[in-house]
Design a protein around this nucleic acid. Structure first.
Lengths: 148, 148
DNA sequence: CTCAGTGCAAAGGATTTGCATGCCG
DNA sequence: CGGCATGCAAATCCTTTGCACTGAG
């Protein structure tokens, strides 16, 4: 997966926050930096561990701001914590491999043609439910190297 | 989606529990019955609401037993509650449409050929991560009729 | 000055656990 | 009889909130 330059990310995040009527404050910058460096979804604790200057409540609060601004995505796994990563339109569309044992997550992508036909089929299938389709989320469940 | 007869489900659940060294107790029977009747993932509260004789802690406790036995699957959405449904090998492989607004979930299936090529691509893609692949989970995110 | 952003401590809320009782095998 | 299952109440632990302080504009 391509690593997006930090400057480019900063610009996008700044724009999103501005649109949402929010500032790109120091803590928010740190959060974005940590998430980019990780390259995978992190829990609140992992974020704090990566940057000791961050405070729990501020991390939660600002992740919520970033999420509402559309810069960060909250991911629900089956273990007890929420995880966060930079939004897809900042990085790129991708999927997750989730470890059933420790909850750790890795990113991966699918060939464009598969992705395309999948998306088509989903819209087709979803018609029957009369939901208004927005996006899809495809995760693979398995066991990570260190848990095997 | 086909509705599996309750007798058939009971047999499978009973077998799973037996293998796990657990009994198919009254509360567990009620849980299975409620989940089957719902035909979609339910939160703990929805379960209790469906059968007032159930007690919160017992529901959690027995859902965990059923999950460990492989009879029930826990589903994480982005809202705050976990949801549970009968495991796929008891009903059949399917996916979820999740409402971003109220968290409600509907089930749906994909054409077999799509499902197949998808699974193939996933295994292919996952090789790079050296995770041990188990299963996949594909959800569609959108807005349900009553929230539109 | 004003007001969003932050840290700290306390509150909130879904889920889990301890314990005494009841019941199946 | 012995041990698992259950209800009730209390404890946990992730996450949110209240409040006072600080710093940017």
């Amino acid at each position: 997966m391509r690593t997006v330059p930090i400057a480019e990310i900063d610009d996008k995040v700044a724009a999103l926050l501005r649109t949402a009527g929010q500032r790109y404050s120091p803590v928010r910058r740190r959060l974005v930096k940590v998430l980019r460096a990780a390259g995978k979804p992190l829990t609140n604790n992992q974020i704090i561990a990566s940057d000791k200057s961050l405070v729990q409540s501020s991390v939660y609060r600002n992740l919520n701001v970033l999420e509402e601004a559309g810069a960060v995505t909250r991911i629900a796994t089956n273990d007890e914590f929420a995880r966060f990563e930079l939004a897809e339109h900042i990085t790129e569309h991708h999927h997750h491999i989730i470890c059933n044992s420790c909850g750790d997550i890795a990113d991966f992508s699918l060939p464009a043609n598969i992705e395309k036909s999948l998306d088509l089929s989903l819209r087709q299938a979803a018609k029957k439910t009369s939901f208004d389709i927005d996006n899809h989320r495809l995760d693979v469940l398995g066991t990570c190297t260190s848990c095997q």
